[in-house]
Simulated assay, not measured.
Amino acid sequence: MNKFSDESVYSFIEYLQIEKNYSEYTIGFYKKDIEQFSLFMNAQGIDSFKSVEYFDARLYVTDLYSQKLARASVARKISCLRSFYKFLLREKLVKENPFVLVIQPKAGVRLPNFFYEEEMRILFEACDNSTLLGKRNLALLELLYATGIRVSECSNILIKDLDFDFATILVKGKGRKERYVPFGSFAYDALQGYISGVRDELMKGKQQHNYLFVNSRGGPLTPRGVRYILSNIIESASLTGKIHPHMLRHTFATHLLNNGADMRTVQELLGHAHLSSTQVYTHVTKEHLRKTYLNHHPRA
């Protein structure tokens, strides 16, 4: 890529960081998708982003399908490049958006995986409550399950964001949007125990800061650190199947809906901008009801 292209990508990434406030995890996908498109441009002899036309965009999508990528992956890459060119148009660096008319494939409904209540009990028991780090891990797990917050949101929590009088937490979500989320008695007790008897010990003799969760060296716990801890807890619990830390967020939403919570409330708690993002969990609850019916009705 030429200098023009490099500067364009740099400006776009800066825009995602500063104006859109996207996480490094999300930005990483944007970088990867643009880099992949740049390789395609090189192969086609296209020397700059402003030289790309609608035909080139269609050809690129055809190339993606030839790689046997999932529809969701193709849709994400198209969406990324459409956003990239929308930014370049805004900055008057290109004259048209070649991806604006490219049709995105419809992704099939993919039901989010979640933990059953018995599995959650096993996860909590996997935290060694006799050690400082075990108590920290329990507080972390309790808070994530109690609130359904994202891993990236969890790592940004400050001590002052907790209100123990009302058992609520101020969460800073995507796009600098803030929301208050309540937490229950189990998370309350675990957090109180962690703050009063663990956090200060882990930070003893270290540089002081106001982040709620700290690592073994007393520094702020990063999103990667949170994922590492959760992965270790899941591994220690010896649960089987395909498991990832984001399942705690899915579990929070699914358990609320299974126990009668209305969807609008769950949407607000999750920090979803659109109700459609929350509606996927209705598929989970319907499947749960169907399995319960088939397993227990005498004429099922």
Rank of each mutant, 00 (worst) to 15 (best):
Thr292Val: 14
Ser155Tyr: 06
Asp6Ser: 08
Val74Gly: 06
His272Ile: 00
Gln104Met: 14
Ile78Gln: 08
Lys177Trp: 12
Gln207Glu: 15
Ala139Ile: 04
Leu191Met: 07
Ala190Thr: 09
Gln44Gly: 10
Glu153Tyr: 12
Gly148Thr: 00
Ile229Trp: 03
Leu141Cys: 04
Met247Gly: 02
Gly260Trp: 06
Asn129Lys: 15
His283Leu: 12
Arg290Trp: 04
Asp47Ser: 10
Phe87Tyr: 10
Gly45Glu: 08
His283Gly: 15
Gly45Arg: 11
Leu141Phe: 08
Ala72Val: 09
Val284Leu: 01
Met41Pro: 06
Ser51Asn: 13
Met1Asn: 00
Phe213Lys: 04
Ser236Gln: 14
Met1Lys: 02
Lys174Asn: 09
Ser277Met: 01
Tyr30His: 07
Tyr60Glu: 02
Val9Ser: 01
Glu268Trp: 11
Val171Leu: 13
Phe124Arg: 02
Ile243Arg: 12
Tyr60Gln: 09
Gln208Gly: 06
Thr62Ser: 10
Gln207Ser: 14
Thr278Glu: 00
Asn137Phe: 00
Asn42Ala: 10
Gly218His: 05
Leu270Glu: 09
Leu101Tyr: 15
Asn137Ile: 00
Asp165Asn: 14
Gly184Pro: 05
Phe87Val: 05
Gln192Val: 12
Arg290Thr: 01
Asp262Thr: 03
Tyr145Cys: 06
Glu53Asp: 13
Phe84Asp: 01
Ala146Arg: 08
Met41Ile: 10
Arg76Cys: 11
Tyr116Trp: 14
Glu268Ile: 02
Thr265Asn: 05
Tyr180Cys: 05
Glu142Pro: 10
Arg58Cys: 11
Ser155Asn: 04
Ser130Pro: 12
Ala57Gln: 04
Thr265Lys: 12
Glu178Leu: 06
Tyr25His: 15
Leu275Met: 01
Ile159Tyr: 11
Asn232Gln: 14
Ser130Met: 14
Gln207Asn: 09
Ala237Leu: 04
Phe49His: 00
Arg90Phe: 12
Lys172Asp: 03
Tyr22Glu: 05
Lys92Tyr: 04
Lys291Phe: 11
Gly184Phe: 06
Ser152Trp: 09
Tyr15Glu: 03
Leu132Arg: 05
Gly205Lys: 04
Tyr10Asn: 07
Val280Leu: 05
Asp200Leu: 09
His288Leu: 01
Glu235Cys: 00
Arg110His: 15
Ile169Cys: 08
Ile18Tyr: 15
Ile34Lys: 04
Ser5Val: 01
His255Ile: 06
Cys80Gln: 03
Val226Gly: 05
Gly197Glu: 15
Ile159Ala: 10
Ala72Lys: 13
Arg290Gln: 08
Ile13Phe: 14
Arg176Cys: 07
Met41Ala: 06
Leu138Phe: 11
Tyr65Met: 12
His288Ile: 02
Asp6Met: 08
